[in-house]
Amino acid sequence: MNTIQEIWFLFRKELTLEFRQKYAISGILLYVFSTIFVVYTSTFDADPKQWNILFWIIVLFASVNTATKSFVQESGSSQLYYYSLVNPVAIIISKMLYNTLLLLVLNFLAYGVFSLVLGSPVRDFQLFFIAIFLASLGFSITFTFISAISSKADNSASLMAILGFPIVIPIVMELVKVSQNALPGSFDSAINEDIMILLAIDLLLGGAALMLFPFLWRD
């Protein structure tokens, strides 16, 4: 079985597990809805800039919670079983792909609920959806790898935040900048450059994660 097939099988395994348990997705959805409700009850009238920041903060925390589950969800023995069967690179890639998909669904849902309760100031939908896609990719790459590191320690949840947030800040900053451009009130003609930078950061961190993961999994 070559690596691409392995990735595909593992990816389907993740999806099947998710559909059987509906544990991650329902928990996260509950989190997103309740956070947005809290925002709604305290902020009735957000201008585009605040709307943007609030949206990304909610997405950021939802992503951390989603990705934390990627390695702690399964028991150590079943993980050992996978590692003995397949290439470790296939494992991390499949988890990253699965998390990207999950976060993509989640972020679009969050955007939907958010615009339902707070209204949607988005003007340039194409740009905003590109931002959401790049956010899903970047958060998934970073947090999947960080969760692989922190799952090795006992107190993994707090370690996840300590290790993850500083690393993800450049991605968040570029995201806020790109999506700000999709809202009324600001226009930057060089925004394509920022999109390329965001993609480059995602790929750079992804490349580093892929190279380092084979050293990480063995216990």
Binding site: I149, L163, P166, I167, P170, L205, A208, L212
Partner: peptide, 9 residues
């Protein structure tokens, strides 16, 4: 592993 990842970041 973290140190190398941190350097990239």
């Amino acid at each position: 592993v973290y140190n190398m990842f941190a350097f990239v970041a």
